[in-house]
């Protein structure tokens, strides 16, 4: 059986055997990577609808993983929002995005019946003006503000481009189905960096190597949750077995839709998507690109058979061209 398959793939489609594990749904990436009896695949479900933008995740991650300052200089204000981290990078493995949107008054994505938490209130004049105005009637006068906050992280893709293109084997699939860089192997070639469809992994300039979220591989081994999930005060970051997280996310989405939050959507939860489903997925309240996420990411190595085919064809043309140059008069 195995021999048959090998023979067939060798003769008919040189890379069919490979393409199966390059893209598409894959039940268990750890087994696919050669772990004989892996534990359950784990991941993150980041429910941005309850994120309060406190950045405890960013701090906990830096503390636990000894991640150096985001920038070398003194704190650099980006001047766009409360977000001065800006992006995921070698020195930022969690990144809290802040998006401030003007919306028609009364449609701030808040629950219909607000619960009084005893927080300081705006002066009565303002309070009276905002919430009850006709929503979106003229789109001009009646306006409110809605905040979107989201803690971004490495997606630990089912099909991880960074891992696929790494020429040293420094990036590997752990028994938990996550993707980790072995820092003693990485030689700083930088190939993983433009390969990631989410722009997650980066190069630490003063070090030369590539770094990213490990999903706290060291803590998992000791039965602990990753630092960010542990620190999150609202359970916006949930850690657990991926299957369970997906069920929980679907239930949450349903509840939000019932409550009238029609714009809620899951991002990265579908095993049929371009990366075979993300190990870290999200519940978003707007289009992914608003949070700096690609709307339809695809693992670059999905097209690897096509890429090698064209490179081989072009090499054949080059060889033929050199041969042709020797035809004719001396």
């Amino acid at each position: 059986m195995t021999a048959d398959r090998t023979e067939q793939s060798a003769s008919e489609a040189p890379m069919e055997w490979l393409s199966a594990s390059l893209a598409g749904p894959l039940a268990d990436p750890a087994t696919d990577a050669g772990h004989p009896h892996p534990p359950e695949r784990v991941g993150f479900f980041t429910d941005t609808s309850v994120c309060i933008g406190c950045k405890a995740c960013e701090v906990a991650c830096k503390e636990w993983n000894l991640v150096p300052p985001t920038r070398d200089e003194a704190p650099d204000l980006l001047g766009t929002s409360f977000d001065n981290t800006g992006e995921l990078s070698a020195n930022s493995w969690r990144h809290v995005a802040f998006v401030e949107q003007r919306v028609p008054a009364g449609t701030g994505g808040r629950p219909a019946e607000a619960v009084d938490l005893g927080m300081p209130q705006p002066p009565p004049a303002e309070r009276d003006r905002a919430p009850e105005a006709a929503p979106g009637a003229d789109g001009g006068a009646a306006e409110g503000v809605r905040w979107l906050m989201s803690s971004d992280v490495c997606k630990h893709c089912t099909h991880a481009a960074c891992l696929d293109v790494c020429p040293t084997g420094a990036l590997f699939r752990t028994e938990y189905g996550t993707v980790v860089v072995q820092e003693d192997i990485c030689n700083g070639c930088g190939y993983c960096i433009p390969a990631c469809p989410y722009g997650v992994i980066g190069k630490r300039e003063d070090d030369g190597r590539a770094f990213k979220c490990t999903l706290c591989y060291d803590r998992l081994g000791s039965g602990l949750e990753p630092a960010c999930a542990t620190a999150c005060p609202t359970d916006s970051i949930q850690f657990g077995p991926l299957e369970e997280l997906r069920e929980r996310a679907n239930a949450r989405l349903e509840r939000l839709h019932e409550a009238g939050t029609a714009e809620a959507r899951l991002y990265g939860a579908d095993p049929g998507d371009g990366v075979g489903g993300a190990g870290a997925f999200f519940l978003l309240l707007d289009e992914p690109e608003v949070y700096g996420l690609p709307p339809d990411p695809v693992v670059t190595t999905r097209d690897l058979p096509d890429i090698w085919r064209h490179a081989a064809l072009a090499a054949g043309v080059a060889a033929a061209a050199v041969a042709a140059a020797f035809l004719g008069r001396r």
């Binding site: 929002s81 998006v99 990631c196 722009g199 992994i201 949070y291 700096g292």
Partner: peptide, 10 residues
């Protein structure tokens, strides 16, 4: 649309 015009890819 984008997040403050920042790059998505590295």
């Amino acid at each position: 649309r984008s997040y403050y015009g920042r790059p998505i890819l590295k």
